[in-house]
Amino acid sequence: MSFSKATDLLRLAMMASGRRGVCLAEIEAEFGCVRRTAQRMIEALQQAFPTTDHYIGDDQRHYWRLPARSIAALLSPTAEELAATSTAITELELLGLVSEAARLRTLNQKIRALLPEGSGARLAVDEEALLEALGYAARPGPRPVLNPEVDEAVSTCLKGPFHLRIAYKSRADEEAVERVVAPYGLLLGARRYLVAEDTAKKDGRLRHYRVEDIISAEQLATSFEIPESFKLASYAQRAFGSYHSDDEFGEVVWRFTPHAAEHAKRYLFHPSQVTEDQSDGSLIVRFKASGHLEMCWHLYSWGNCVEVVAPQSLAKMVIDHRRSDFPGLP
């Protein structure tokens, strides 16, 4: 058996060790093969692992299931996988998801405790080199200061979901004002916004609270139900960044100059964007979103290499700030 076939067999064994096992259609999708090849792979799995069980599921498909203990000794993690876990922990901490980072760190420690004797030191050296190359040893850049107690309370209430009592100081307030809110989710971007309903207001509107402006937060014992029609991913797409405005929401059209067009093609400005190549070499980007101020912050970095075609309110905001002396593009 070739090395590539051996690694494919191990991948298949890992798929089969799941609670439901694996079926032929899943093998075809995972390995990009035809039905006969999938059948041969199952035959090889059964030969290599005699404990493989076969059964017919509720969907009338044939499934093959392998006890996880049969391959446990073969599943030692790689340095790349350990580095990916450490990277994820750092990203969660940067986003203020402290409790999630702590849980992933505990899982990481459990994985390392199960490493075969003698392999831990070698993997640690390789992992450290990868993390240093990725820049996570010391990552610069401005970001809001985190409040671990607030972050923990928000995270816990989102999982309930439970009502949350917050002391919030908006930019219009001289002192923090206490509110009881029903939290729906977090919008992550240049700033973090808690999407929540103020229980004292009966208009049913969702409001956004900047997490760094929440002075204190306390989980309450009462719970609530988030409407089934609410999907945070769909809701988030109504904004360019993390700020929402129903009044601003609408079509946005940017034209990048021929000089910047190829560079702009390597950006995803918004999940709903559509791009159009122009005959003069320029590039049109269209999407629907709100958050004109956050758009301005990004557009400024492109200098005079981008023009706002629509809406006119956004065009007026950036027209006096399109510099021509930036030495590079974002």
Rank of each mutant, 00 (worst) to 15 (best):
L66S: 06
A44Q: 15
I56N: 04
A83W: 05
T87V: 00
G57R: 03
L82Q: 02
L114Y: 06
A101N: 08
D53W: 05
E28N: 15
A38E: 03
I71F: 04
E117V: 09
E26P: 06
E43F: 08
D59R: 08
L104F: 15
E28D: 13
T87G: 00
Q109P: 02
A83N: 04
R40F: 00
I89N: 05
R103C: 08
T52A: 14
S17W: 01
T87Y: 04
F31V: 02
G118S: 07
W64D: 01
L24T: 15
G57D: 05
D58K: 15
S119E: 06
A68T: 07
S99R: 11
S119P: 00
E80F: 08
D59K: 13
F31G: 01
A73R: 14
A48P: 11
L45S: 00
A84S: 08
G96N: 06
I71K: 02
S76T: 12
E91R: 11
L74K: 02
T52S: 09
D59M: 10
I111S: 01
N108I: 01
G120S: 10
R40C: 00
R61E: 12
I42C: 00
I111V: 14
L97S: 07
P77N: 12
T51S: 14
H62P: 03
M14P: 07
R61Y: 10
S86A: 13
G57Q: 10
R20V: 12
R112V: 15
R20Y: 03
L94H: 04
L107D: 09
Q46Y: 01
H62Y: 07
R36P: 04
G120C: 12
A68Q: 04
R65M: 13
F49S: 03
A79K: 05
E26S: 03
A101F: 10
L115A: 02
C33N: 05
E43I: 14
G18D: 11
F49V: 10
L107Q: 14
Y55E: 06
D53F: 05
T78F: 05
T106I: 12
P116Y: 08
R122L: 09
A83T: 01
R19A: 13
A88C: 13
M15L: 15
F31E: 04
A101P: 07
A113I: 07
R103I: 04
P50Y: 05
E28K: 15
G21E: 07
A44T: 14
P50T: 14
R105N: 12
A79W: 07
P77R: 06
L95M: 15
T87F: 08
M14T: 08
A113D: 04
Y55M: 02
L97P: 01
T51Y: 01
L94P: 00
R19D: 11
A38K: 09
W64A: 05
G96C: 10
M14N: 12
M15Y: 12
V22W: 01
Q47N: 04
A84E: 01
G120E: 12
A29P: 13
L45H: 08
N108R: 05
E28P: 11
I89T: 08
G120Y: 04
R69W: 09
L82R: 11
T85P: 02
I89Y: 10
E117G: 02
S17V: 04
L97N: 11
E43G: 08
C23E: 13
R61L: 14
S119I: 05
A72N: 01
R61W: 12
A88Q: 02
L114C: 15
